[in-house]
């Protein structure tokens, strides 16, 4: 195992262990998402959803739940000196970016594993669209993880952390949301899933992920310096 991989593993394991021990982010994200579904139930006054309405509700909810997690991802590094400790260590800087993006990605997977079935139980009559939804979820998670890590690392060193994350992140993820909802709404159509432009949207998601993974990896160095 190369030193970078070992360090990556160490950071990811450290974060997951801390989360398991303190339950600081994930339960809040899940609770928030489920409550939001209930608010949509009454806000839209609908007991069943399909098509673009269903995909809009599920993605809006996931996005805002993700923001909760993104807000906190660098908090221990900032407040308990992790940034300094990391900068003293013989590890390449982008390792921290990759590690945090990995942690965020895993958080989002756990969130979706719990919350998407809840959504289906609450609102969907036809569950056959859920399996092809998996690649859409994974690709969108990657985009959230890359952009969220980048934004969070900037915001955590500023005075207005909680405010800046959604402010900066929301416009940046609009294209991600367009592609994710574009791929999702035919899957959740009331007449059973259809794959209208499915591949094209996945391609857009992949392209977007690729660009911002690269940008984040390249500029992260400059965010760590004092």
């Amino acid at each position: 195992m190369t030193p970078s991989l070992q360090a990556l593993g160490a950071i990811v394991a450290k974060d997951l262990r801390t989360e398991l021990r303190t339950m600081r982010s994930l339960p809040a994200m899940i609770l928030f998402a489920v409550t939001t579904f209930i608010i949509f139930r009454f806000g839209l006054d609908r007991t069943a959803l399909s098509g673009s309405l269903a995909s809009g509700v599920v993605w809006t909810t996931l996005l805002f739940a993700a923001v909760l997690g993104i807000n906190r991802i660098f908090l221990p590094e900032r407040e308990e000196g992790g940034f300094d400790a990391f900068r003293l260590a013989p590890v390449d800087r982008p390792v921290l970016f990759v590690a945090k993006a990995t942690v965020l990605f895993l958080y989002l997977v756990v969130l979706e594993v719990i919350v998407v079935p809840v959504f289906a139980v609450f609102f969907l009559n036809d569950w056959s669209g859920l399996v092809p939804l998996i690649p859409v979820l994974l690709l969108t998670n990657l985009g959230f993880a890359a952009l969220g890590t980048l934004i969070s690392s900037m915001a955590v060193n500023s005075r207005a952390r909680d405010l800046l994350v959604p402010l900066l992140l929301l416009p940046l993820v609009v294209p991600l949301m367009i592609a994710a909802t574009g791929a999702t709404s035919p899957l959740l159509d009331s007449g059973g899933p259809s794959f209208d432009k499915f591949g094209t949207w996945l391609l857009v998601l992949g392209l977007y992920d690729g660009v911002f993974c690269l940008v984040g990896y390249a500029v992260f160095d400059f965010l760590l310096e004092d």
Binding site: V174, P175, I178, A179, G182, T200, V204, L207, Y208, V211
Partner: peptide, 10 residues
């Protein structure tokens, strides 16, 4: 540019 592409596609 990515944003313009995505919105136009939509």
């Amino acid at each position: 540019p990515l944003n313009f592409m995505a919105v136009r596609m939509a």
